[in-house]
Amino acid sequence: MSISCIIVEDEPYAGNLLEEYILQVPYLRLEKKCLTAMEALNFLQSQPVDLIFLDINLPQLSGMQLAHILPQNQKVIFTTAYTSYAVESYAINAIDYLLKPITFERFVKSVEKIHGVAKQRTAEQGNFFIKSGKAMIKVSDAEIYYIEGLKDYVVFRLEKEKHIVYKKMKDLEAILEENFMRVHHSFIVNTNHIKKIEDNQVHILDQRISISEKYRESFMSFIRNKLM
């Protein structure tokens, strides 16, 4: 799942910096670098993109003005030296707001937000077949509440049924989408189905699954990103 993007930035070095960053993120695909908002507008009319890195302080037509012209659902990450535009930028569907100087770390954090959303969408559409006995049963990602690992096989727990599959937890982890997280040596949970997290336990369906030491940090940081 790649994300197409353009840079709108009138300062060449600032534009180059973003380009360097984009090249280092495998799922980002840079389509064009524009020096003005008008140039971007012209380009977008013939070739729409998923994401725009948009400087606010541009000559003639400002980045903020361009954002107002673009379709409501256009994803924009603003880049600027001003902090005073933050409130306005969030009012117009901006995904994020990068303050100059922009570090790579901060940049990645920002694009990950969009990547996360995109991945979730494909996961929602994703379904696969489980071999259960002699039958092949179609299961969609969303139906799975959690997966329990036993010795040589795993148990897929759906709302009302269970399916046993001969597979290893480690192999599953690599296949499943990002919303599936390992919380324990023996458990992978679908974070979309978590009811609550309390006393270091994940409540899901009628189960309480302990979060083990090994997976606690990665799991909790995932949750913290979704904390309002």
Binding site: E11, Y13, A14, N16, L17, E20, N57, A81, Y82, L99, K100, P101, I102
Partner: peptide, 18 residues
């Protein structure tokens, strides 16, 4: 101007990055 300062720093950031 803070605007001048931070834009200048962003450019210098790129120069040092490369």
């Amino acid at each position: 101007q803070p605007h001048f300062l931070f834009n200048a720093l962003n450019n210098i950031y790129y120069l040092s990055y490369t």
